[in-house]
Each structure stands twice: as C-alpha cells, then as structure tokens.
C-alpha cells in the first residue's frame, strides 16, 4: 500500500482500528499494519559535546503500543522527550534530524512546542501531580487550553479512562498528593488523557509502583491503545512483551539496534546483541 488513501478510510487490512492517514506513503515494512503517526528520520541528540542518540530512524504506528527497551543510559528517555520536544527545556540539549508528526517535521521553525505538546501528552516516571485537588489536576490541561465547556463531564471521563474514577469520585476536591503512588500515577494519566491528545508518551510509568499497581497500569495501557497511540519506555522486558505491539531495542551508545513486532523481537531477534540483551547475557 504505497499509494496513500484518504484519511478517514478504514484500514484495508481490517485487523486494527486504525485509520489511514494521507501522509504515510513511506512505509516499507511488511509488518506495518497500522499507519505511522510519528516518524523519526536520522535523529541525533547531543548533550553539549556528548552524543546520546545516533541516527535513530523509526516509525511509530498509530493506536498501538510501542515499547522502548534497553539498558540504562542508552537514550530511551532522551528519545521519548524528543517526540514532544520536552528536550527544549534542557539548555545543553541539541536535536538534529527530523521527527515527523502526521507528516510535519516538529522541529520546523513554524512549529510551536506548546501546541505540539497539546497533541502529544506525557506521563513521567515519578508520579508528579500538582499540589492541587484531584479535580483541578485533571482540569488543569483543559483550563490552559481553553477547553472549559463541560468541564465536570470531561474530568469524569478522564478519571474513568484512567480507571481511577471509582476510587476518587467522592473526594474530588481533596489534594492529589494524598493519593497512593499508583493512584497518583493514574491521576497523571487522567490528566494527560483529559485534553484528548493523539499520542501519549510514558517514561517507565510503573517503575515506582508495586506489582498490583503496576498490573493496573498495564491493563490501562492496553485499554488506552484503543483510542490513543502509546509509546512507553520500560526496563521490564516482560512488561514490554505483555503490553506492546512493537518493540524498539536501544543499546548502549544510543543506537536503535532493532525495531519490529514485539513477538518477533522476543522470539526471533535478528541480531546477536539484542538476543544477548533479552536473554539477560548483556553486560
């Protein structure tokens, strides 16, 4: 399918809920079933003199879960932050190459990172609710984006979407900081989905949580991928295998060594280094 369909037409393959976009005629991976929403083209990232990522190219499919795994310091978080330009916040960080979001290079001069981040939300490793009420946490994004109509309904929907509603519906006006860690993280997810982004980036969202809270977050992520594109960084190989459709393996030095369907990566990795990493032989 090299010739692009009009957007809005159902995916001819029919196996996913994805919608075909006009811009993605470049896909040459046979395994790509869904259309690309974010595409990195030769991305290099530097912190001052140090290069953290080397020539990363990958296509992130829409409404699927893409996992990024790799040893500590290999640049997973760095790459994630490139996708919504959170790296702009870091003085010494420089990004070369292109990242296209629906065909538009987000590093073009005419792209406003503030607007971009309204389309591409993010959940952090440490739950970081604002020191405000649960309600205000979820409503905050809507407020700054001026989407204030039906606020109560939107807050409720977001909390339901984050599987938190039942636990907090009676105390919406108590502080978000009084929740447990797992609840706080789901609150942060609610906050991110309330503004209806297209992509949600998650940087080890469950690493600060216990196994039960982790399982809740994992279920939630699978749920979310029906409506959103999810890109998740994880240290936990089983987690990547359980929840993701695609997996990218980064290795030390900031290279993307392999990127493929998750079951292929785990069952039949192409390179020896990836196999070593997955089987735990890695450094």
């Amino acid at each position: 399918m090299t010739s692009a369909d009009d957007s809005g037409t159902a995916d001819p393959v029919g196996s996913t809920e994805s919608v075909v976009d006009t811009s993605s005629g470049l896909s040459d991976r046979a395994t790509t079933r869904s259309d690309t929403i974010v595409e990195a083209k030769g991305v290099d990232v530097f912190y001052g003199e140090d290069q953290a990522l080397q020539d990363i190219s990958m296509e992130i499919p829409e409404k699927q879960v893409t996992a990024m795994i790799g040893p500590s310091g290999c640049g997973k978080s760095t790459f994630l932050r490139c996708i919504n330009r959170m790296n702009d916040q870091i003085d010494v960080c420089r990004v070369d190459g292109e990242i296209e979001f629906r065909g538009k290079n987000i590093y073009d001069d005419d792209v406003d990172p503030v607007v971009l981040r309204r389309r591409i939300g993010m959940v952090f490793q440490q739950p970081n609710p604002f020191p405000k009420s649960i309600y205000d946490n979820v409503a905050y994004g809507l407020k700054i984006q001026g989407k204030t109509e039906d606020m109560d309904q939107k807050v409720e929907n977001a909390l339901k979407g984050a599987a938190l509603w039942d636990e907090v519906k009676d105390k919406l006006h108590t502080s978000g900081l009084d929740l447990s860690g797992g609840q706080q993280q789901r609150l942060c997810i609610a906050r991110a989905i309330a503004v209806d982004p297209q992509v949600i980036l998650m940087d080890e969202p469950a690493s600060a949580l216990d196994p039960i809270a982790t399982a809740q977050i994992e279920d939630l992520i699978e749920e979310l991928s029906r409506d959103f594109t999810v890109v998740i960084v994880t240290h936990n190989m089983q987690q990547a295998a359980r929840i993701s459709d695609k997996t990218a393996v980064f290795l030390t030095g900031g290279e993307l060594v392999e990127f493929d369907d998750t079951n292929r990566i785990f069952e039949n990795p192409q390179s020896q280094r990836v196999e070593d990493y997955i089987t735990g032989k890695f450094g």
């Binding site: 919504n84 959170m86 916040q89 503030v114 607007v115 971009l116 981040r117 309204r118 939300g121 993010m122 952090f124 440490q126 970081n128 609710p129 604002f130 020191p131 905050y140 994004g141 700054i144 984006q145 942060c188 906050r191 991110a192 503004v195």
Partner: peptide, 23 residues
C-alpha cells in the same frame, strides 16, 4: 520548586507564563 512539577505542566501544553503563574 521541583522540575517534575514544571514538566508536568509543560507536557500538558502549558506556556512558560502558565507554568510561572500556576505552578
């Protein structure tokens, strides 16, 4: 003020001014 809080707001599409004023 921890950067985590700022980043939480920036990631929601807050401007510098929003972050200064609300966070």
């Amino acid at each position: 003020v921890p950067d985590d809080l700022r980043n939480g707001a920036y990631a929601l599409g807050a401007t510098k001014f929003d972050v200064s004023l609300n966070v």
